[in-house]
Design a protein around this nucleic acid. Structure first.
Lengths: 191, 191
DNA sequence: CGCGTAATTGAAAAGTATCAACACTGGTGG
DNA sequence: CCACCAGTGTTGATACTTTTCAATTACGCG
């Protein structure tokens, strides 16, 4: 549920240690909005530490969380390829430390470094593979099943993420999430 | 709604005309299942002509359509990067003609041809940009609004695609789609 | 303590799915 | 030419799920 990309982060670390390229670094406090949707930024970030959420806000102010980004996940890269404004907002959950690439450095690396190129391409492909089944799942199964799946995937869930974020991730209201959780509790007590 | 990628298809046509690489070609009759989810294939296809649907089938047999693929759209490429089985099925709607790459040729092109590399990368990025807002939309607005949006985007909709596919694309039952359509008709008559 | 934020819960309203029946169409064979 | 069939589309009634709204409680922190 909180996605990571170990191969990417470790490769970037070695690049950074060599010092050939001027890879930047940033630290964001908890609950900082790093990207706001429909804006332009010239940066690509890769998370070293911490968790961020990537989400879309609709006209009614409701958030729909696309994914939770952990170590090695990048964001801001889509805008390098398409030269458009962001489609998602990104905000840190806890303290987030990240590598920071300018668009030009990012492009340069893509051209000059074939390992980097492959890692990024695999990263993009994985994002697609991740997104595809997610929504079909949530549609096909009742909320309870979705919650169960999350709890298996990520037991510490409720300790790290606020309920609202979990609900927004599943795509339901907090009310519905709470009902599902309560019913699950009752079923477990019954056993 | 039916996605296309003109720059990719025209570049592949020039590659094909040069004849340096052995790019294959295939033709599929209407309603042919080209890929079945959770299987392995060694091919990447790029559509020259026709429309295909890319969808996930859940355990209850319900289809959830990810996207409709038109000219220049590729499928089967995700499995080149991650070496896993397919997550989606792909089936032709009408007659589909497509370029066909073996995985090894595809990889070779990615390495040797930087234009090809960039086009593919942009294609992946566009798929992500496309998928992200889609489900948040469908969740945030009632069916009627979703139908209206589709009709604006693609007026010939109902002439080409069966109702079931449209419903599966929006993520509702045919019954609900029909109700929405009927209510829209009544509202228009009222004006 | 008091404040703001997050979590919990109930009741009513809205939206959607399910199920079942029926209409329409194009093609096939008697 | 008609009867039949399969596939697709249409519609109504009902049951179920989820949202909405509103009220209350719990918690962390200056």
């Amino acid at each position: 549920m909180i996605r990571t990309n170990q191969s990417l982060i470790s490769y970037i670390r070695t690049l950074d240690n060599k010092g050939t390229y001027g890879i930047g670094a940033s630290i964001f406090e908890p609950k900082t909005t790093i990207f706001r949707q429909n804006h332009r930024y010239g940066k690509v970030y890769v998370i070293k530490r911490g968790i961020a959420k990537c989400y879309i806000t609709d006209e009614n102010g409701r958030e729909f969380i696309q994914e939770f980004l952990g170590e090695g996940m990048e964001f801001g890269e889509l805008e390098v390829f398409s030269d458009k404004s962001t489609i998602c907002s990104v905000a840190s959950i806890n303290e987030v430390e990240a590598f920071c690439f300018t668009h030009s450095l990012y492009k340069q690396l893509l051209e000059e470094d074939s390992t980097f190129n492959k890692l990024i391409m695999k990263g993009l492909a994985d994002k697609i593979r991740y997104k595809a089944p997610r929504h079909s799942y949530q549609h096909s199964y009742p909320i309870e099943d979705n919650v169960l799946r999350l709890q298996k995937l990520f037991p510490q869930l409720t300790e790290i993420l606020p309920k609202k974020d979990i609900a927004n991730y599943i795509g339901v209201t907090t009310r519905s999430l709470n009902r599902a959780l309560k019913e699950l509790r009752q079923k477990n007590d019954g056993n």
